[in-house]
Simulated assay, not measured.
Amino acid sequence: MGMASALDTFCGQSYGARQFHMLGIHMQRAMFVLSVVSIPLAIIWANTRSILIACGQQKDIAEEAGLYARFMIPSLFAYGLLQCLVKFLQTQNIVFPMMIFSGITTLFHILVCWVLVFKTGLENRGAALANSLSCWINVLLMVLYVKFSSSCSKTWTGFSKEAFHDTVSFVRLAIPSAVMVCLEMWSFESMVLLSGLLPDPELETSVLSISLNTAATVWMIPYGLSGAASTRVSNELGAQRPYLARNEIQVVNYVAVMLPVVATSNFLDGLQCVLSGVARGCGWQKIGAYINLGSYYLVGIPIAILLAFVFHVGGKGLWLGIICALVVQVLSLATITVRTNWEQEAKKATDRVYDEVIPVDTVS
């Protein structure tokens, strides 16, 4: 998801600049890179059990998690392709079909998950397989839409060898994009790992994992706003309309500056999602990665460890550490957004778009 978010910048700004054929090139390039990156990730997933045990986790918990991770490997490759397709359509403001496909997939997933978990005896393995199957179905539906829909006739012009050219420019933005996303998400996940080291790890990991999934469910709402902000900002910058991009951000900045530091973690996370979307739309992934590194790993996790293990607050202390990280992250992103020169960002968008323009007649 992190590496695919580089398409927020490339596809969004190309669409705004009306270089429609470049969106298909960028998507193919992203699919190639993400498929390659998924291979070492799959190897890590296959060795999850050993990694967790080496980190000091309880053996039976590590065994179950490792088994689940192995059966989730097929979903890894599907998810990479799915994220590329989502960004390709989202940056063109094609959202309704994606909602329909997700709804169809979800309804199908409920049935498949019930059958594989309860009727086949696969239990957790069945849940992992259901996730993989549903993800591939969603990919198939979106591929068919891109291939046959008239909405994508200008942006999808078929496969092209140009997608394998200049992958360095994509990777150069994709890596900090991934770091920006992963540093935040891993900090939340690390709370579950740390809870496994507390007294009564079964209770602590159960509570923390349920809390994490609950927060992730609520987080999907501001993440949708993040995608909207990213699309609007990148489109307007690519179209050389920096004043429209700036007007959208002023509201976000004003709210972020006025936030009380005692706001709940979900509310803070909603703000950082929108601001992160603005950052991706502008191509600031490297800056975002540094902010997330400092916020979560220099502030949030140390405070979480201090509260949980020194002051013995337990799982609640781990979550309070994340709130501290969110406060630092929101304030940092808001400060950078307020001080941005939008005319200069529009010029950068032009350079980024037209440096890679491929004549339409060369696209196969």
Rank of each mutant, 00 (worst) to 15 (best):
F77G: 03
R49D: 09
F101S: 00
I104W: 01
G24E: 00
I43Y: 09
L89R: 01
L41Y: 13
P97M: 04
N93C: 08
N93G: 05
I44N: 06
A62E: 01
R29A: 04
A62Y: 01
P74D: 07
L76V: 12
V86Q: 09
C84V: 03
S75E: 03
A78S: 15
V95H: 03
K87V: 06
L111W: 12
I44A: 14
F32N: 02
T106F: 12
P74Q: 09
F88N: 00
Q58H: 14
A46T: 07
I44K: 04
I25R: 00
V86A: 07
W114V: 09
M27T: 09
L81V: 10
K87D: 03
G103Y: 05
V33W: 00
A54W: 13
K87S: 08
K87W: 07
M31I: 12
V36I: 15
L89F: 09
F96Y: 14
L34V: 12
L107I: 14
R49E: 15
T105M: 05
I39G: 06
Q90H: 13
P97T: 03
N93T: 11
F77S: 08
E64M: 13
S102D: 10
N93A: 12
T106C: 12
M72Q: 10
T48D: 08
V95R: 01
P74H: 03
T48P: 06
T48C: 12
I39T: 08
V115Y: 13
K59G: 04
I73S: 00
Q57A: 04
G24C: 04
I61G: 02
A42F: 08
A69T: 02
C55W: 14
S38F: 07
Q83S: 14
F20V: 09
I39F: 10
A30H: 01
Q19A: 15
V36N: 08
M99E: 07
